[in-house]
């Protein structure tokens, strides 16, 4: 099946890990992940500048690895992201900020990408906290 996973929870909440675990398991079971959509506090999963405490699972890094391994389409909602300091080089230049933070393999885009995902996907699963 074609699945889209919506992540509304920050990596500090277990819900974000659940979303990651669900995505991995779905891929292992042979399903297609049409899109990962990070929304609200969920965009903090896209913050490549975060550093996990030593000995703790680095969820932000794990997402990037999963996205790279499977060539997943991963969208970080642009308005949620800007508000939380998740910037790519274009937005960083536009708002004259000192750096970029968007994780590798992730793209800033709007809610239209979520609507598109609902049209194309067989199932949409949300994780919130």
């Amino acid at each position: 099946m074609k699945l889209t996973v919506v992540i509304n929870a920050a990596p500090s909440s277990q819900a974000a890990w659940s979303a990651y675990q669900f995505t991995r398991t779905a891929l292992d079971a042979g399903h297609e992940i049409y899109r990962l959509f990070f929304y609200a506090d969920g965009v903090l999963n896209s913050n490549a500048l975060s550093v996990a405490p030593q000995g703790e699972f680095d969820l932000v890094q794990a997402w990037q690895t999963l996205i790279a391994e499977h060539g997943l389409d991963a969208i970080s909602c642009v308005s949620s992201s800007l508000k939380r300091g998740i910037l790519d080089s274009q937005e960083s230049a536009r708002y004259e900020r000192s750096g970029t933070s968007l994780g590798k393999g992730m793209t800033l885009s709007g809610l239209g990408q979520l609507v598109d995902a609902t049209l194309v996907s067989d199932r949409v699963v949300s994780f919130g906290a």
């Binding site: 509304n8 929304y39 609200a40 809610l111 979520l114 609507v115 609902t118 049209l119």
Partner: peptide
């Protein structure tokens, strides 16, 4: 090209951002 999307909004208007998050989804849809 068209689906039935239901948005359930269950949170207070201020402080958490869920109200606005829900509203933005509704408007986009």
């Amino acid at each position: 090209t068209r689906k039935v999307l239901t948005f359930i909004s269950r949170h207070v208007p201020y402080g958490q951002g869920w109200a606005k998050a829900s509203l933005d989804m509704v408007l986009s849809a």
